[in-house]
Write a protein that binds this DNA or RNA. Structure first.
Ligand SMILES: [Mn+2]
Ligand SMILES: [Mn+2]
Ligand SMILES: [Zn+2]
Ligand SMILES: [Zn+2]
Lengths: 136, 136
DNA sequence: TTACTAAATTGTAATCATTACAATTTAACA
DNA sequence: TGTTAAATTGTAATGATTACAATTTAGTAA
Protein backbone atom coordinates (compact mmCIF):
# COMPACT_ATOMS: atom_id res chain seq x y z
CA UNK A 1 0.00 0.00 0.00
CA UNK A 2 1.14 3.50 -0.77
CA UNK A 3 3.19 5.11 1.98
CA UNK A 4 1.07 8.24 2.17
CA UNK A 5 -2.23 6.39 2.01
CA UNK A 6 -1.05 4.45 5.02
CA UNK A 7 -0.30 7.62 6.97
CA UNK A 8 -3.78 8.98 6.35
CA UNK A 9 -5.43 5.62 7.07
CA UNK A 10 -3.59 5.32 10.38
CA UNK A 11 -4.91 8.72 11.36
CA UNK A 12 -8.48 8.02 10.23
CA UNK A 13 -8.31 10.80 7.68
CA UNK A 14 -10.38 10.46 4.54
CA UNK A 15 -8.08 9.71 1.64
CA UNK A 16 -8.16 12.25 -1.17
CA UNK A 17 -5.70 12.80 -4.00
CA UNK A 18 -5.24 16.41 -2.87
CA UNK A 19 -4.17 15.41 0.63
CA UNK A 20 -1.86 12.78 -0.77
CA UNK A 21 0.02 15.13 -3.08
CA UNK A 22 0.37 17.79 -0.36
CA UNK A 23 1.74 15.19 2.04
CA UNK A 24 4.05 13.80 -0.63
CA UNK A 25 5.32 17.26 -1.43
CA UNK A 26 6.21 17.94 2.19
CA UNK A 27 7.84 14.53 2.49
CA UNK A 28 10.06 15.12 -0.52
CA UNK A 29 10.81 18.82 0.03
CA UNK A 30 12.53 19.70 3.26
CA UNK A 31 12.52 23.40 2.45
CA UNK A 32 9.77 24.31 4.91
CA UNK A 33 7.60 25.76 2.14
CA UNK A 34 4.71 28.17 2.50
CA UNK A 35 1.18 27.20 1.51
CA UNK A 36 1.57 29.25 -1.63
CA UNK A 37 4.81 27.53 -2.61
CA UNK A 38 3.16 24.14 -2.21
CA UNK A 39 0.14 25.30 -4.19
CA UNK A 40 2.12 26.89 -7.02
CA UNK A 41 4.22 23.79 -7.52
CA UNK A 42 1.38 21.27 -7.38
CA UNK A 43 -0.89 23.41 -9.54
CA UNK A 44 1.38 22.75 -12.52
CA UNK A 45 0.65 19.03 -12.56
CA UNK A 46 -2.82 19.33 -11.05
CA UNK A 47 -4.48 22.34 -12.67
CA UNK A 48 -7.80 21.80 -10.90
CA UNK A 49 -6.20 22.12 -7.46
CA UNK A 50 -7.52 24.97 -5.37
CA UNK A 51 -5.43 26.99 -2.95
CA UNK A 52 -8.16 26.64 -0.35
CA UNK A 53 -7.75 22.88 -0.60
CA UNK A 54 -4.05 23.20 0.11
CA UNK A 55 -4.86 25.24 3.20
CA UNK A 56 -7.49 22.72 4.25
CA UNK A 57 -5.15 19.77 3.72
CA UNK A 58 -2.40 21.48 5.71
CA UNK A 59 -4.83 22.21 8.55
CA UNK A 60 -5.99 18.61 8.67
CA UNK A 61 -2.47 17.19 8.59
CA UNK A 62 -1.42 19.68 11.25
CA UNK A 63 -4.31 18.79 13.55
CA UNK A 64 -3.25 15.16 13.43
CA UNK A 65 0.36 16.10 14.13
CA UNK A 66 1.52 14.63 10.84
CA UNK A 67 3.00 17.99 9.96
CA UNK A 68 3.80 21.09 11.99
CA UNK A 69 3.50 24.76 11.12
CA UNK A 70 6.35 27.16 11.76
CA UNK A 71 5.77 30.80 12.68
CA UNK A 72 9.45 31.59 12.21
CA UNK A 73 9.26 34.06 9.33
CA UNK A 74 6.56 36.22 10.86
CA UNK A 75 4.39 37.08 7.89
CA UNK A 76 3.57 33.61 6.62
CA UNK A 77 3.34 30.08 7.98
CA UNK A 78 5.77 27.45 6.83
CA UNK A 79 5.14 23.73 6.92
CA UNK A 80 7.30 20.81 7.89
CA UNK A 81 6.84 17.07 8.16
CA UNK A 82 6.83 16.12 11.83
CA UNK A 83 9.98 13.98 12.00
CA UNK A 84 11.01 14.34 15.62
CA UNK A 85 11.88 17.41 17.62
CA UNK A 86 14.29 19.76 15.89
CA UNK A 87 15.00 23.47 15.78
CA UNK A 88 15.11 25.89 12.84
CA UNK A 89 17.27 28.64 11.49
CA UNK A 90 15.80 31.51 9.47
CA UNK A 91 17.97 33.70 7.26
CA UNK A 92 16.83 37.31 7.37
CA UNK A 93 18.55 37.90 4.06
CA UNK A 94 17.38 35.14 1.72
CA UNK A 95 14.44 33.86 3.76
CA UNK A 96 15.56 30.23 3.81
CA UNK A 97 14.60 27.99 6.70
CA UNK A 98 16.88 25.09 7.55
CA UNK A 99 16.86 22.38 10.17
CA UNK A 100 19.06 22.66 13.22
CA UNK A 101 19.58 19.50 15.22
CA UNK A 102 19.88 20.56 18.83
CA UNK A 103 18.89 18.71 21.94
CA UNK A 104 16.35 20.64 23.95
CA UNK A 105 16.63 20.15 27.67
CA UNK A 106 13.78 22.49 28.44
CA UNK A 107 10.87 20.10 28.14
CA UNK A 108 11.29 18.63 31.61
CA UNK A 109 11.91 21.98 33.25
CA UNK A 110 8.68 23.39 31.85
CA UNK A 111 6.59 21.18 34.11
CA UNK A 112 7.03 23.47 37.07
CA UNK A 113 5.10 26.26 35.34
CA UNK A 114 1.90 24.25 35.28
CA UNK A 115 1.10 24.93 31.63
CA UNK A 116 0.30 22.03 29.34
CA UNK A 117 2.99 21.99 26.68
CA UNK A 118 1.98 20.70 23.27
CA UNK A 119 4.61 22.21 21.01
CA UNK A 120 8.19 23.35 21.37
CA UNK A 121 9.78 25.59 18.76
CA UNK A 122 13.37 26.76 18.73
CA UNK A 123 13.89 29.53 16.20
CA UNK A 124 17.30 30.99 15.45
CA UNK A 125 17.53 33.99 13.17
CA UNK A 126 20.38 35.72 11.42
CA UNK A 127 22.33 35.43 8.19
CA UNK A 128 22.90 32.02 6.66
CA UNK A 129 26.27 30.61 5.68
CA UNK A 130 25.60 31.07 1.96
CA UNK A 131 24.55 34.70 2.29
CA UNK A 132 27.58 35.44 4.46
CA UNK A 133 29.92 34.18 1.72
CA UNK A 134 28.22 36.27 -0.96
CA UNK A 135 28.64 39.42 1.09
CA UNK A 136 32.42 39.32 1.02
CA UNK B 1 16.49 62.97 32.76
CA UNK B 2 13.57 60.82 31.84
CA UNK B 3 14.34 57.12 31.69
CA UNK B 4 12.94 56.62 28.21
CA UNK B 5 14.53 59.75 26.80
CA UNK B 6 17.83 58.35 27.97
CA UNK B 7 17.23 55.05 26.18
CA UNK B 8 16.55 56.82 22.89
CA UNK B 9 19.48 59.23 23.36
CA UNK B 10 21.85 56.35 24.02
CA UNK B 11 20.77 54.79 20.76
CA UNK B 12 20.97 58.01 18.74
CA UNK B 13 17.27 57.88 17.99
CA UNK B 14 15.43 61.15 17.50
CA UNK B 15 13.24 61.78 20.51
CA UNK B 16 9.54 62.07 19.77
CA UNK B 17 6.59 61.89 22.15
CA UNK B 18 5.16 59.03 20.12
CA UNK B 19 8.27 56.89 20.51
CA UNK B 20 8.40 57.69 24.19
CA UNK B 21 4.86 56.56 24.93
CA UNK B 22 5.25 53.37 22.92
CA UNK B 23 8.44 52.57 24.78
CA UNK B 24 6.85 53.41 28.12
CA UNK B 25 3.87 51.21 27.33
CA UNK B 26 6.09 48.22 26.59
CA UNK B 27 8.14 48.88 29.72
CA UNK B 28 5.07 48.92 31.94
CA UNK B 29 3.09 46.15 30.24
CA UNK B 30 4.73 42.76 30.14
CA UNK B 31 1.84 41.24 28.23
CA UNK B 32 3.64 41.03 24.89
CA UNK B 33 1.01 43.16 23.18
CA UNK B 34 0.31 43.43 19.47
CA UNK B 35 0.77 46.70 17.58
CA UNK B 36 -2.98 47.17 17.62
CA UNK B 37 -3.24 46.65 21.37
CA UNK B 38 -0.57 49.28 21.94
CA UNK B 39 -2.26 51.64 19.51
CA UNK B 40 -5.77 51.19 20.91
CA UNK B 41 -4.63 51.85 24.46
CA UNK B 42 -2.48 54.88 23.69
CA UNK B 43 -5.04 56.35 21.31
CA UNK B 44 -7.34 57.01 24.27
CA UNK B 45 -4.97 59.51 25.88
CA UNK B 46 -3.36 60.63 22.62
CA UNK B 47 -6.16 60.94 20.04
CA UNK B 48 -3.88 62.26 17.32
CA UNK B 49 -1.71 59.14 17.39
CA UNK B 50 -1.61 57.21 14.14
CA UNK B 51 -1.37 53.47 13.91
CA UNK B 52 1.33 53.84 11.27
CA UNK B 53 3.36 55.75 13.81
CA UNK B 54 3.06 52.89 16.28
CA UNK B 55 4.33 50.52 13.59
CA UNK B 56 7.15 52.92 12.74
CA UNK B 57 8.14 53.35 16.37
CA UNK B 58 8.14 49.61 16.93
CA UNK B 59 10.28 49.08 13.85
CA UNK B 60 12.81 51.67 15.00
CA UNK B 61 13.00 50.32 18.54
CA UNK B 62 13.32 46.82 17.17
CA UNK B 63 16.14 47.74 14.81
CA UNK B 64 18.10 49.12 17.74
CA UNK B 65 17.42 45.98 19.76
CA UNK B 66 15.59 47.96 22.44
CA UNK B 67 12.60 45.73 21.89
CA UNK B 68 12.10 42.41 20.14
CA UNK B 69 9.25 41.11 18.05
CA UNK B 70 7.77 37.68 18.68
CA UNK B 71 6.33 35.55 15.89
CA UNK B 72 4.87 33.11 18.39
CA UNK B 73 1.17 33.53 17.66
CA UNK B 74 1.47 33.12 13.92
CA UNK B 75 -0.96 35.69 12.61
CA UNK B 76 0.33 38.83 14.31
CA UNK B 77 3.58 40.11 15.76
CA UNK B 78 3.90 40.70 19.47
CA UNK B 79 6.37 43.05 21.08
CA UNK B 80 8.52 42.74 24.15
CA UNK B 81 11.11 44.89 25.87
CA UNK B 82 14.51 43.30 25.39
CA UNK B 83 15.41 42.44 28.97
CA UNK B 84 17.80 39.57 28.52
CA UNK B 85 17.29 36.22 26.85
CA UNK B 86 14.13 34.45 27.86
CA UNK B 87 11.64 32.08 26.30
CA UNK B 88 7.88 32.36 25.83
CA UNK B 89 4.77 30.31 26.31
CA UNK B 90 1.70 30.82 24.12
CA UNK B 91 -1.72 29.58 25.16
CA UNK B 92 -3.67 28.25 22.18
CA UNK B 93 -6.87 28.75 24.13
CA UNK B 94 -6.77 32.31 25.46
CA UNK B 95 -3.90 33.64 23.37
CA UNK B 96 -1.83 34.90 26.28
CA UNK B 97 1.95 35.04 25.99
CA UNK B 98 4.00 34.73 29.17
CA UNK B 99 7.69 34.71 29.95
CA UNK B 100 9.49 31.45 30.61
CA UNK B 101 12.85 31.69 32.26
CA UNK B 102 14.93 28.88 30.81
CA UNK B 103 18.60 28.69 30.20
CA UNK B 104 19.39 28.07 26.58
CA UNK B 105 22.48 26.00 26.01
CA UNK B 106 22.17 26.08 22.27
CA UNK B 107 23.95 29.32 21.50
CA UNK B 108 27.43 27.82 21.66
CA UNK B 109 26.48 24.72 19.74
CA UNK B 110 25.12 26.77 16.86
CA UNK B 111 28.56 27.96 15.86
CA UNK B 112 29.33 24.74 14.03
CA UNK B 113 26.62 25.44 11.46
CA UNK B 114 28.38 28.55 10.20
CA UNK B 115 25.30 30.76 10.24
CA UNK B 116 25.48 34.15 11.93
CA UNK B 117 23.01 34.03 14.78
CA UNK B 118 21.35 37.31 15.72
CA UNK B 119 18.23 36.15 17.53
CA UNK B 120 17.18 33.13 19.51
CA UNK B 121 13.53 32.43 20.20
CA UNK B 122 12.16 29.61 22.30
CA UNK B 123 8.43 29.22 21.84
CA UNK B 124 6.36 26.77 23.84
CA UNK B 125 2.71 26.30 22.95
CA UNK B 126 -0.18 24.60 24.65
CA UNK B 127 -2.83 25.40 27.26
CA UNK B 128 -2.00 27.76 30.08
CA UNK B 129 -2.47 26.99 33.76
CA UNK B 130 -5.50 29.29 34.05
CA UNK B 131 -7.29 27.80 31.06
CA UNK B 132 -6.60 24.29 32.35
CA UNK B 133 -8.35 25.07 35.64
CA UNK B 134 -11.41 26.53 33.92
CA UNK B 135 -11.85 23.39 31.86
CA UNK B 136 -12.46 21.13 34.84
C1' DT C 1 -22.08 -2.54 -8.44
C1' DT C 2 -25.01 1.22 -7.20
C1' DA C 3 -27.08 4.68 -4.35
C1' DC C 4 -26.59 7.57 -0.50
C1' DT C 5 -24.59 11.05 2.45
C1' DA C 6 -21.43 13.46 5.07
C1' DA C 7 -17.31 15.42 4.08
C1' DA C 8 -14.02 17.45 0.84
C1' DT C 9 -13.05 20.44 -2.97
C1' DT C 10 -13.46 24.54 -5.57
C1' DG C 11 -13.72 29.50 -6.70
C1' DT C 12 -14.78 33.75 -5.03
C1' DA C 13 -15.29 37.18 -1.64
C1' DA C 14 -14.12 38.90 2.88
C1' DT C 15 -10.92 39.72 6.65
C1' DC C 16 -7.17 41.61 8.89
C1' DA C 17 -2.31 42.67 9.91
C1' DT C 18 1.08 45.12 7.81
C1' DT C 19 3.23 48.22 4.39
C1' DA C 20 3.42 52.03 0.85
C1' DC C 21 2.93 56.58 -0.03
C1' DA C 22 2.27 61.59 -0.19
C1' DA C 23 1.12 65.65 2.52
C1' DT C 24 2.00 67.84 6.77
C1' DT C 25 4.44 68.56 11.00
C1' DT C 26 8.37 68.62 13.96
C1' DA C 27 13.03 67.61 16.43
C1' DA C 28 17.58 68.83 16.22
C1' DC C 29 20.98 71.94 15.20
C1' DA C 30 23.30 76.11 13.68
C1' DT D 1 14.77 81.78 15.10
C1' DG D 2 15.15 79.55 10.67
C1' DT D 3 16.36 75.49 8.15
C1' DT D 4 15.94 70.86 6.89
C1' DA D 5 15.96 66.06 7.13
C1' DA D 6 13.28 62.99 9.42
C1' DA D 7 8.94 61.72 11.70
C1' DT D 8 3.99 61.69 11.84
C1' DT D 9 -0.44 61.23 9.88
C1' DG D 10 -4.30 59.41 7.11
C1' DT D 11 -5.48 56.77 3.43
C1' DA D 12 -4.84 53.32 0.07
C1' DA D 13 -2.64 49.02 -1.27
C1' DT D 14 -0.88 44.47 -0.32
C1' DG D 15 -0.90 39.78 0.78
C1' DA D 16 -1.73 35.75 3.69
C1' DT D 17 -5.45 33.47 5.47
C1' DT D 18 -10.36 32.45 6.24
C1' DA D 19 -15.47 32.32 5.21
C1' DC D 20 -18.83 30.66 2.46
C1' DA D 21 -21.92 28.46 -0.89
C1' DA D 22 -22.10 25.42 -4.84
C1' DT D 23 -20.32 21.26 -6.62
C1' DT D 24 -17.95 16.95 -6.36
C1' DT D 25 -16.40 12.82 -4.13
C1' DA D 26 -14.82 9.05 -0.64
C1' DG D 27 -16.55 5.72 2.04
C1' DT D 28 -20.18 2.76 3.22
C1' DA D 29 -24.00 -0.26 2.99
C1' DA D 30 -27.72 -2.40 0.44
MN1 LIG E 1 12.35 21.23 9.88
MN1 LIG F 1 8.94 38.29 27.19
ZN1 LIG G 1 20.55 33.39 3.46
ZN1 LIG H 1 -4.90 30.31 28.42
Amino acid sequence: MDKYVKVLKNNHIKITPQRLIVLEYLDKNCTHPTADEIYSYLKKKHPSLSKTTVYNALETLNKHRIIQSLTISGNELRYDLNHGMHHHFYCKNCGCVVDVELKCSNIEKMKKYGHQIEEIHGYLKGICKTCLKKRR
